[in-house]
Computed example of a mutant assay.
Amino acid sequence: MRTPHVVVVMGVAGTGKTTIGPLLAARLGVPYAEGDDFHPQANIAKMSAGHPLTDEDRWPWLDAIGSWAHGRAGLGGVVSSSALKRSYRDRLRAAAPGVVFVHLTGDRALIEDRMAHRHGHFMPTALLDSQFATLQPLEPDEAGVAVDVTGSPEQIAERAMAALEQVPEPTV
Rank of each mutant, 00 (worst) to 15 (best):
P31G: 09
V8Y: 12
P60Q: 04
G74A: 10
D148C: 05
Y88C: 06
T15K: 02
W61F: 02
A95G: 05
V99W: 07
L110R: 13
G14S: 03
L127G: 05
G77Q: 12
E158Q: 12
A126D: 02
G151P: 11
K17C: 13
T134Q: 06
F122N: 04
E165H: 13
A73G: 12
H51I: 15
D129I: 07
P140T: 09
L62E: 05
D57G: 01
H39T: 08
Q136V: 14
M123G: 10
G35I: 04
D63M: 13
S48G: 14
H5P: 13
R108W: 02
V79A: 15
D129W: 00
G14Y: 07
G98D: 12
L128V: 10
H117N: 12
G76C: 13
Q166L: 14
M115A: 06
F122D: 03
P60T: 01
L164H: 10
I20Q: 00
S80G: 12
V145G: 03
V9G: 10
Q41D: 14
K17F: 00
A25K: 13
K17L: 12
T19L: 15
I44K: 14
S87P: 01
G21F: 07
S81G: 07
P97K: 05
S82W: 12
S81I: 08
A69G: 06
L23D: 07
L75D: 15
A160R: 10
S81M: 12
V172W: 10
L23P: 11
G71P: 09
A146R: 05
A109M: 04
E56L: 08
G151F: 06
G66C: 11
A126V: 01
M10R: 04
R72K: 08
P4M: 10
R118V: 00
P168Y: 01
R89W: 09
Q166T: 14
L53D: 05
E158R: 05
A133D: 05
A45F: 02
P140I: 09
F101L: 11
A49V: 04
A69V: 00
G14D: 09
R159C: 07
T15C: 15
D36C: 02
G21Q: 07
L138H: 00
A69E: 08
S87I: 10
R89Q: 01
V167F: 10
P168S: 04
D113E: 12
R86Y: 06
P124R: 04
D141A: 07
S67M: 01
P170M: 11
K46Y: 03
A157V: 06
L164G: 05
P97I: 01
F38Y: 14
D141M: 00
M123T: 09
W61N: 03
A133Q: 13
L23M: 15
